[in-house]
Design a protein around this nucleic acid. Sequence first.
DNA 1: TATAGCATGTAATTAGTTACATGATTAA
DNA 2: TTAATCATGTAACTAATTACATGCTATA
Lengths: 188, 188
Amino acid sequence: MKLRPISFLILGMVRHGVSSGYAIKQAADVATRNVWPVSLAQVYPELSRLEQGGLVTRRDDPRGARERSAYEITETGEAALLTWLNSTVEVPMQVRSEGFLRLFFADILPIEEQLSLVRRLQERYRSMKDHLYDNAPQSELESLADAGIRYPLILIRMGERYYDSMRDNLAELEAELEAEEDAVEPPH
Amino acid sequence: MKLRPISFLILGMVRHGVSSGYAIKQAADVATRNVWPVSLAQVYPELSRLEQGGLVTRRDDPRGARERSAYEITETGEAALLTWLNSTVEVPMQVRSEGFLRLFFADILPIEEQLSLVRRLQERYRSMKDHLYDNAPQSELESLADAGIRYPLILIRMGERYYDSMRDNLAELEAELEAEEDAVEPPH
DNA sequence: TATAGCATGTAATTAGTTACATGATTAA
DNA sequence: TTAATCATGTAACTAATTACATGCTATA
């Protein structure tokens, strides 16, 4: 049975006690979306696959008349997760940023438009940083950390720094472009 | 006609004078792979689409008996490219990093294995930084910049800083984990 | 009482990669 | 002379998203 990153994401979530497909999607949206986004339409079939492979077990866990499945990790599943955590193979890291693709072609634009593009990109990073804690407030992450699960907080903090450093880079570029603009057409 | 990031990537490359499908793929691999990766099997059909849409024109441009197509951007294509460069809509930025996904679940591991995971991640960033200039040497990028096309160099430099800052973050985490390990089992 | 959220799933579509097929040219 | 690179394209497959369908429960 072939296991991919999405398999381990789900396995890891289940191992952390997140038991339903819906809840896994929710948790992934607040916690892992910045390193590995997933959609609901991936979660349900993959959970079945993992169950068939004997890596998780399923039981009915309805809430009133509303059906719900609760998954638990098996020993095989746990072993697979640990092996993955300690392995070095990984699919090449991928970044897709339409904003930076634009920047790559910014030479085509006049200087004022280059500037406004750089400012827009900065704004984007500012807003991404501002929304990092939206669904997982710091307090919640800190109590998780106190309970021994601290990497979610560590990752969010790295994210903050990453956004800050990108913004610094862009701010520097902005300053250079402003200086250039002034050299051509001095401020009034 | 629906234009996506890949369309603008190709349009931009053609506008920069990269005229064949093969050459576009080569250029994208050295220059834009870190912000928007593409494969050859996307380039050829998309070029045809752009030609059908009147955004580029095609002419035969063989090298000896070896066939080759040379594409040029049309005025419509140029206008579309400029509109895109100045527009604010963009597909949400995406990052997929199996390494960081592992880190998210590192709480499961004993401290020594957490440490080796963090070290492996650092190593990965070091090597990514080291390979940034592999196919586009700094000298080449600098002469491009002297010729007025400077964003390729700007982007590579931002990439360097990005890798450095990620490595700093990870080094700090490594130091914290080492301190913790020593507290539990002091060095001999 | 109606809207948002919980809950599960499938179908259809889009996007992207890998593999295949073919053949010319250049450099070792 | 042979391997690497140039060059174009398609077929098959894998991955991922969006849309659709259904129904319960809590809350405003």
